[in-house]
Each structure stands twice: as C-alpha cells, then as structure tokens.
C-alpha cells in the first residue's frame, strides 16, 4: 500500500511526523479519510478524533480545532491541542463541556448560540469516545 508523509503539529510541539497509510481527519464538514495521492485540500477541523493508520497499527489522537492541509508533499494538520487519546486528560474535555454549557444558558437564540451548541456536541462526542476507550 502506498504511504504518504504526515505531520501533526501543535503550537508547542511536533506531535507526529512520519510515513502513514491512511489518516481519518475530523473536518468541519464531516470526517474524511486521506490516502496517498489525495487531491490538494484545505479544511478546518472540529474537535474530534483523528485516526492514524500506519504499518498495520492504528493510533487515535484527540484534536481540538485547527486545520488540515493536503498537498503533494503530504498531509499537515495544525491542531490547537493534539494528544494521544490514551494519554488525554479527560478533565480538560469535561471542563470545556461545563464552561460551554454554562455559557449557552445565558445566550440569546441566534447564530452564536447555534455555533456554541455545535461546539458543545463535538466536545461531547470526544468525551464519549474517551470514556468508551477507557472502559476497554
């Protein structure tokens, strides 16, 4: 299977760099899988789970916002926070959910509220995923 180069970069460190078979990226418009030879794309990320398939192994990473760029050179994901799902501190996510829930209560109906609710849903999804893996 053809491989391609993948960088996962957080503001304070390079989290992952290497050859991979496939990466599933949580885009704002929906998840998309990237294989070698993918068309050049720029996409924003939503908070979610990014899955890396390399050498028959599967690694799950939690990314909280950012963007992905696919070019001929490979895939680059710049994420605000990028941690291995296994190492991720759940308190960060639950804390975020609580602050979001609190802020939604005081909001007027409108565009901002819709966005906040969408964001909250993303975080809840991440949280569900984290608790799911923890139970295995």
């Amino acid at each position: 299977m053809a491989t391609f180069h993948f960088h996962l970069v957080a503001p304070d460190k390079m989290t992952f760099s290497g050859e991979v078979d496939q990466v599933d990226v949580p885009g704002t418009e929906g998840d998309f899988g990237v294989l070698a030879g993918h068309a050049p794309t720029v996409s924003l990320l939503r908070p979610g789970i990014l899955t890396i398939y390399a050498g028959g192994q599967k690694v799950e990473m939690v990314v909280l916002g950012g963007f992905a760029e696919v070019s001929e050179a490979g895939l680059t994901v710049l994420a605000d926070v990028a941690d291995k799902a296994a190492d991720m501190d759940r308190a960060v996510v639950t804390g975020k959910i609580e602050t979001l829930e609190a802020s939604i209560k005081g909001m007027e109906p409108g565009n901002a509220l819709d966005k906040a609710i969408a964001r909250l849903d993303h975080f809840k999804e991440v949280d569900r995923h984290l608790t799911g893996t923890a139970m295995h």
């Binding site: 068309a39 794309t41 720029v42 963007f67 070019s71 001929e72």
Partner: peptide
C-alpha cells in the same frame, strides 16, 4: 500554487486562520 479544494469556503477558512495566525 496547487489548486486547493477548500472545505468550507475560502473566506470562512481565512476567517478562522487569520486570527489563529496572529496568536501563533
């Protein structure tokens, strides 16, 4: 310059990236 496909639209991406770039 590679012709990128944008997801969502270019201006929305720019709207997100520019403030982020500033912070970076």
């Amino acid at each position: 310059i590679a012709a990128y496909e944008y997801e969502p639209e270019e201006d929305e991406i720019l709207g997100d990236l520019l403030p982020r770039n500033l912070s970076v």
